[in-house]
Design a protein around this nucleic acid. Structure first.
Lengths: 326, 326
DNA sequence: ACCGATATGTCAATCGTTTGACATTTTTAT
DNA sequence: ATAAAAATGTCAAACGATTGACATATCGGT
């Protein structure tokens, strides 16, 4: 039978009101009384019921975190960082993998509302989910436009696209392609492609855009990449994510193309996984530590003051991590 | 202002008791009344307050999931799968990254108790945490001994160790090492090393065990691996996780060792990430789909009936995924 | 001696929802 | 016509904790 606050009061020999005062550190309290109450709590393994407390108007300190799939190393690392920061601030994370399924994302929002979360960090890619605007909850978005009053945190995708393409060009590439996901209206990640195109246009070179649908499995994606690489003799490829870059390197090996002599490759993300286990890959690193810190910081400001004025966009600078592939 | 059940009742023109009956599908209810109530719920964007409901004895349907760090691809995929299965069964996951920090894991347990979670799936590696036994909660463990009445789910580590070593041997290796983490008393993962040693002993070959501490960063781990590989001329290496295997492959390249001619390598885990982006790696695949399904299934059985009899150990068969490295 | 501060207790209302007991009305079957 | 079933309403207690108002006792400073 789970211990209740009244049980703690009985064991400590004080009133229930006193126990509540100790737990919440309200009112006059002697050190002796505090110690007696804490000792009773320890002996009974008592934890105040957060459900009952939140019914009294206390925040639940639950945060919903929605990404498409945390088995993707980028999201895995991002969510891991966000969770660590939140836990250190006495918040806990309800994890949501929405995949590329708008209805699933809506179901998650409903569930998060029912669980009285204090706020949401949303970083999935589904579009057209009006519910985000209907609930009037503190929400911060990562890399996706949700509504006019929901701030977006992202890396400087445009700078990243420019930088990646510049790196390929300066490494001698002139026939440069980009392998990217499907463009979403209003999505900051479009900036990678825009930066890529802007650089090539400035250099009077021809852009070659290849969209690889998100829903392709890696194996099918690899086949598509192989088809493209066989049909075109690119000497530089910018992949708008690192996993695609790994596939390109795999295909290069299959086609006996030497990297970086015959083919230069740059990726995007620069997760710890890539830096630790694929340091050969030249990549544009998104500042995951800063992104996480900023997402949490903005959300907690919104939780503290729902009407506080925040920018609509926060753009963090990227950095080129020089490997051996470009 | 958040809508309450009474607001729904007013809009639908029924009593609050009727709304509660519709939500919980209790008692006699006409279809017309149900439809009126659902329409009012939709119009007000009403979600029943799960905190108040759980105060009434309803389960919170919250599950605590504790792993060391989900930015590790293995845990990332495992947690992702567990979360998907749980969400489909109308449960939600509170995510906990305990790292290699026992006190942090204790803090998480306290927090989970305070939040009245219905159960816990525990897969971190910290030892000596008595709290798991004190709270009397449904708990299922992955790859770690917690207490006599907490079931453990793991892959057949012994078979995996045997299989990996046999694969190296059959590929021509006779001077075979194992790179493993530190042994923990009672931990199923010790089986990998035991299977490795048993195979070599049966073949009258000499085991070479190298323990790489968990707390080494990948860069330091790589240096340690390079030192070992330089000092010994192993012709076969079994790594007890795939990321270590990637490091070994990196070092082999640095030392101009051809794989698998001069050096055969087998890893362990076989995550989707490895299969998709490193199909060249020969590895022992843990059945993550089955592990996830079983962890959830056992936990829900425990939640349903706290005294149901479960085995103390569930061991799932592994499978060798043949790549090019052995 | 007196007054203010300190310390703790009592009491009851409240949070949002559930739920059982009982009442009333309507509908349907015999 | 009557009885049973269906449908909905009323009412109040309860879940665990918080909290404000007020009471009482003790202690320390003036």
């Amino acid at each position: 039978m789970k211990p209740k606050l009244n049980d703690v009061a009985k064991l400590a020999g004080v009133s229930a009101t006193t126990v509540s005062r100790v737990i919440n550190n309200h009112g006059y309290l002697s050190s002796q009384t505090k110690e007696k109450v804490f000792a009773a709590m320890r002996e009974l393994h008592y934890q105040p019921n957060n459900m009952a407390r939140s019914l009294q108007g206390k925040n639940t300190r639950l945060i919903g975190v929605i990404f498409s799939d945390i088995s993707n190393p980028f999201f895995g690392e991002l969510v891991s960082r966000i969770e660590k920061i939140l836990f250190a601030k006495n918040y806990k994370v309800i994890l949501c993998n929405s995949a590329d399924d708008p209805q699933k994302e809506r179901d998650y929002l409903q569930m998060l509302m029912a669980n009285q979360v204090d706020g949401i960090i949303a970083g999935a890619h589904n579009l057209g989910i009006e519910e985000y605007q209907q609930y009037g909850l503190p929400i911060i978005s990562f890399d996706r436009y949700l509504s006019d009053n929901i701030p977006i945190v992202s890396s400087d995708n445009y700078q990243g696209g420019w930088l990646a393409t510049q790196t390929l060009h300066q490494a001698g590439a002139t026939n440069v392609a980009i392998f990217t996901g499907k463009s979403h209206a209003g999505s900051p990640t479009n900036g990678r492609r825009e930066g890529y195109e802007a650089y090539l246009t400035a250099q009077q070179l021809t852009p070659h855009v290849h969209e690889l649908p998100f829903e392709l499995t890696p194996a099918l994606k690899m086949m598509e990449i192989k088809t493209i690489m066989t049909q075109h003799q690119y000497d530089g490829i910018f992949c708008s994510d690192d996993l695609a870059a790994l596939l390109v390197l795999n295909v290069a090996q299959q086609l006996s193309l030497t990297v970086p002599e015959q083919l230069r490759v740059v990726g995007y993300d620069g997760t710890a996984l890539i830096r630790d286990y694929h340091s050969e890959l030249t990549t544009v690193e998104q500042p995951l530590a800063d992104i996480s810190t900023l997402l949490v910081s903005l959300l907690l400001q919104r939780i503290e003051d729902a009407n506080c004025t925040l920018e609509s966009k926060y753009t963090l600078p990227v950095k080129l991590i020089k490997g051996l592939t470009a």
